[in-house]
């Protein structure tokens, strides 16, 4: 009688969304300045490098990039969902609690200090971003718990203050940086999906997927947390523990995403809202579907970033902001009558 989400209904919806994601990834991998013949790709790699260019471009360059975009999109959308739930704030996004400025500070410190060592054969910028992001979130969490009764408000305030303070430090460092250092920092700040080493991609995939599955396991408790701490306790939720787990996992997945691809805005804000408008607010559904749609959204955005000004490339953050805004407005206009906080 009552319309409640069942495991079966969820499985069907998630399967359909996954099919869409795979289709989008396949299509986007085929698109680009270099036309690719599937026939050649299926012939397999040549005896020597350079013999089958089509195969090498698709498998060696485009597929890893498409997978990376899907991963980053999924991570950002998921932590957007979680932070909106635990902060009970529709305006929350993955960066609201200082992750962006912390990672940014890590990156600019790495660039300016001119470090030369390598990490997994690449630049250690990602490591600095990851450490900066997690350290900042930890700082915000501690400050948020120092102050007072309403955890949510003090967390938000601590996040806003730390973000503002670190942004000021970043601006200071940018103003004293040399011009060649500036370019790499600014590019990072705009968000960029760049092909990664397969090992890095593998480890990140495992971490992000594990984070999403762990978040899914507490998703029914997130539903109740959106009603506030008192209500959640009354329904048997250990609110302190659940909030800490949700917050930690969201910070962890976001930190990985940020260290992989820099600051990509809008995905973590609009994808959860879009999915909520269409599918409803139940987090058991909202979380996995947002992860999948977030992945697909960023794959498409990154493909556009690759081809719009080809052979040059745009930072994907520019595309997500330009395309995401209007797309979200269309959704709002269509569904706003269903949603109370818009009235």
């Amino acid at each position: 009688m009552a319309e409640i989400l069942t495991a079966k209904k969820l499985a069907i919806k998630v399967s359909i969304c996954l099919a869409v994601l795979v289709a989008v990834m396949a299509l986007c991998a085929m698109v680009g300045t270099q036309k690719i013949s599937l026939k050649k790709v299926f012939a397999g790699p040549g005896q020597e490098p350079g013999q089958n260019i089509d195969y090498e471009i698709l498998v060696g360059v485009r597929l890893p990039r498409v997978i990376l975009a899907a991963l980053v999109g999924a991570a950002l959308a998921c932590s957007g969902v979680v932070l909106q739930a635990i902060l009970r704030n529709p305006l929350a996004d993955p960066y609201i609690l200082g992750i962006s400025s912390g990672a940014g500070l890590g990156v600019i410190t790495a660039v300016i200090s001119g470090i030369t060592w390598k990490f997994w054969g690449g630049s250690p910028i990602a490591v600095f971003a990851f450490v900066g992001a997690l350290a900042t979130v930890w700082l915000v969490w501690c400050i948020g718990h120092l102050t007072g009764k309403s955890q949510v408000t003090s967390l938000l305030l601590a996040g806003v203050v730390i973000n503002a303070f670190f942004s000021a430090v970043i601006m200071f460092l940018i103003s004293i940086a040399k011009s060649e250092q500036l370019r790499s920092t600014v590019l990072w700040l705009m968000g960029n999906i760049i092909e990664k080493d397969p090992a890095v991609l593998g480890v990140s995939t495992v971490c992000i997927l594990a984070g999403i599955i762990a978040l899914f396991s507490i998703s029914h408790r997130l539903n109740i947390l959106t009603f506030g701490q008192e209500e959640a306790k009354g329904l048997g939720v250990d609110t302190a523990k659940t909030t800490a787990i949700a917050f930690g996992l969201a910070a962890f997945t976001t930190a990985i995403a940020v260290s992989l691809s820099g600051l990509i805005g809008f995905v973590g804000l609009i994808v959860p809202h879009g999915v909520r408008l269409v599918f409803g607010p139940d987090h058991r559904q909202l979380l996995p579907v947002s992860a999948i749609i977030g992945g697909a959204f960023l794959v498409v955005a990154d493909t556009l970033a690759r081809i719009i000004v080809a052979p040059a490339q745009l930072p994907v953050g520019v595309i997500t902001a330009i395309a995401g805004g209007p797309f979200f407005l269309v959704l709002l206009a269509k569904y706003s009558r269903k949603v109370s906080w818009l009235k």
């Binding site: 009552a2 319309e3 409640i4 009970r88 539903n223 959106t226 909520r276 607010p281 139940d282 906080w341």
Partner: peptide, 12 residues
């Protein structure tokens, strides 16, 4: 804050 329907609220 978010738009749960009656059945969803009761099911919590």
């Amino acid at each position: 804050v978010f738009d749960f329907c009656v059945a969803e609220v009761v099911s919590m």
